[in-house]
Design a protein around this nucleic acid. Structure first.
Lengths: 140, 140
DNA sequence: CTACGACTTCAAGCTGACTTTAAGTCAAAG
DNA sequence: CTTTGACTTAAAGTCAGCTTGAAGTCGTAG
C-alpha cells in the first residue's frame, strides 16, 4: 500500500499477468522500479505509461516499435526529430491498415449477403484490382 | 506452362515463398492440387482463393479464422447460418479495430505536435477514459 | 517456529506462421 | 551420362510475446 503499488496491483489494473510486467521491464518498456526487500514498488505514473503501451498494442504496434516511439530516445531533452519521423511513418501505416480493414469489411458483407460462390468472384476482383494498383505504381 | 501453374508461379504472384504455399495446403487453406510427376500443378482458380486469403491476412485474420470463414464448411451446399454468424462477429471486430486505429492516430498526432512530456499526460487521459467506459458498460 | 502467500530470478517452454535443412526425385541441357 | 535446377518430403528451427517451472526469499498469521 503506502501510495506505492505492488506488481500484482499494476497487473490487475490492465488485466495482465505479473510475468508480462516483468517482461516489459526486461525489454526496456517499463523502468525498473525501486525495490523494498527485493520487491518491485511502483509509482502511479507507471499506470499512465502502461495505458499508452496497451493502446499501442491494441493498435497493432510491436513492442519494439513502442519502445522506439515512446521510450526510444535519450533522457528527455532533445531530438524530437527522430520521434517526428517515426510517428509520421506510423500514422501513414495506420491509414493503410484502415483502408484494408474497410475493404475486408466490404468483402465480408458481400459474402454474407450474397449466396453463391462469392469467394472466387471476390478473389477475381481483388486480383484485377491489385494488378491495376501495380500499373498505377509503375506510373508514379 | 500448359495452362497450369507450378508452385513457384503461384508463389511469385503473391510474393510468397513456395514453402508458404505448401504450408497453406498442409493446414487446409489451399486444396491439394493434382500432381504431375509428383509435382503440384495449379489451376488459375487458386489465385482467386489466395487473393482472398491474402486480403484477410492483411486485415488481421489468423489462418485459423480464414479457414473457418472461407473454407470451414462442407462441400458447397447448405449451412450459411454458421457462416453468417462468423462473418457478423468478424465485421463487428473490424469496426472495433478501426476505432482503435483512429484513437491511436489521434494519440500519435498529439505526441507529434505537442512538445513536452505528452506521454504521461496521454496515458492519464487514456486511463480516465477507459474507466469512464467501464462505467458506461456497467450501465448497459 | 512453521506455514503461507506473494514475491524474486533464471531458464525453458509455448503458439502462430512460416522457413530452413537434409535427403531424395525428375527432366532437360551440355 | 552427368549436372543443374526446380521440385518433393519430414522434421527441426525461428521470431515475437509472453508463460511456466523450479528453487529460493520475505513477513505476517497462527
Amino acid at each position: 500500500m503506502a501510495d506505492h503499488l505492488a506488481i500484482s496491483d499494476v497487473a490487475r489494473v490492465f488485466g495482465l499477468r505479473t510475468s508480462a510486467i516483468r517482461y516489459y521491464e526486461q525489454i526496456g518498456i517499463l523502468p525498473s522500479p525501486m525495490r523494498k526487500n527485493g520487491r518491485r514498488r511502483y509509482e502511479k505514473s507507471v499506470l499512465f505509461r502502461l495505458a499508452v503501451v496497451q493502446r499501442a498494442r491494441e493498435s497493432g504496434f510491436t513492442l519494439d516499435e513502442i519502445r522506439q516511439l515512446f521510450f526510444g530516445f535519450h533522457p528527455a531533452t532533445l531530438p524530437p526529430k527522430r520521434w517526428h519521423e517515426l510517428s509520421e511513418r506510423k500514422i501513414a501505416e495506420l491509414r493503410i491498415r484502415m483502408k484494408q480493414l474497410k475493404l475486408m469489411e466490404t468483402l465480408l458483407k458481400q459474402m454474407r449477403d450474397c449466396r453463391c460462390n462469392a469467394l472466387e468472384e471476390c478473389g477475381e476482383k481483388l486480383l484485377s484490382k491489385s494488378s491495376k494498383e501495380r500499373v498505377r505504381a509503375r506510373r508514379d
